[in-house]
Every structure is written in structure tokens, then in C-alpha cells.
Simulated assay, not measured.
Amino acid sequence: MEKKSFTFNEIKQKLVNYCVYQDRCHAEVEQKMREFLLIDEAKEEIMLYLLKENYLNEERFTRSYIRGKFYIKHWGKNKIKINLKQKQISEKLINKCFDEIDDADYEKTIKKAFEDYYSKQKGLKEYQKKSKTIKYLMSKGFEYEKINDIFD
């Protein structure tokens, strides 16, 4: 496929649009830049521009990512953390932004996921239902200690 060539300003505008459409992290913007054959100085200049003009804001990205994955996808903190780390977000920033999730909402979500899944387990012994449900909730990213609290 023929690579269309763009001017520096066209590329810069494309990356602004990319960030405006949805919050992005640095790693995503760097990945997107690879589509364009840019020298390092140009990449750096665009990156600084995006940061300076607040098109790119790692904390805002992290907060909106956490809200979306929890409130829409119902992921637990472990799964959210793993996915953010893959996007090269620091553990410190992730932990700072977890206050986006209300503790009461978190517990309610675990309970609801537990009840929904548990009630669908038919023809199993009690301990099998329990262990399948724990496995399921852990795969959704909920912490073992929090899941165990439900049984108490």
C-alpha cells in the first residue's frame, strides 16, 4: 500500500484530532506516530505541543480509563491495573487515580457479579459453585480478599 505523505502540520493536526476524539496515553500517541515517517525531533515537538496544549494528559487518560472499565465494563482493580501498566502508566499514577471508583460502588459491583454468576451455576456441589464463582470474579480483576469478604 502506498504511504501518503503529509506535511508536518497535517500530521500534527491528525494527532490533535486523535487525542480530541478520545483521551489517549503517551504510548498510544507514540504508536500512532509510527504511522507517519517522522524524525525524532519532529515526534518530540509534536509530543510537547500535545502536552502543552493539554490534548495529551496522562492523569486525565488514566482517570477516564478507570471510570470506563469499572462503571461500564465492570472490571476489578487488578484487571484495570494490568491493562494500564501495558499502556506504560506508572503504578503510582494508577493508585492515585483509583479514587475515581467509589468504595461502596466497588462492593456493590462485586456482590452483583457474584450473585449473577453464582445463581447460574446449576447441578454443582456448594463448594464447586463457590470456587467457580471465585475464579470468575478473579478473572474480572477483583481481589481475592474482597471476593472472600462476600462469603463472610
Rank of each mutant, 00 (worst) to 15 (best):
Q13N: 13
R24V: 04
L84D: 01
S64E: 04
V29P: 01
K120P: 10
K129E: 11
I46F: 12
S139L: 06
Y117R: 01
Y55R: 08
K4A: 13
Q22G: 04
F98P: 05
R67M: 11
Y136E: 04
K92V: 12
F6L: 04
G76H: 03
L15S: 02
K14W: 06
V20C: 11
L15Q: 03
C19F: 04
Q13I: 01
E126V: 07
V20D: 12
K52I: 02
K69W: 13
F98R: 04
H26D: 08
K130T: 14
S131G: 02
E107H: 15
S90D: 05
C97Q: 01
C19N: 04
Q121Y: 09
A113L: 11
R63Y: 07
E45V: 03
E126L: 13
H26E: 11
V29Y: 03
E41T: 09
D99E: 14
F6A: 02
L137Y: 06
R24E: 03
G141P: 03
D103R: 09
Y71S: 02
F36Y: 15
E44Y: 07
K129Y: 10
Y71H: 06
E28D: 05
K112E: 02
S119K: 10
Y117F: 11
S90Y: 05
Q88H: 14
A27I: 12
R67D: 09
S90N: 02
K79G: 07
T62C: 09
E30A: 08
T7Y: 13
K73D: 13
I46N: 02
Y65W: 05
D23H: 14
M138S: 03
D116S: 13
K43V: 07
T109R: 07
N95H: 08
Y106F: 11
G141H: 06
V20L: 15
N148A: 09
D99S: 14
I39N: 08
G123D: 08
R24I: 04
F70D: 00
D152T: 14
V20K: 15
N17L: 11
R24K: 13
G123Y: 12
K130D: 11
F6D: 01
K108E: 14
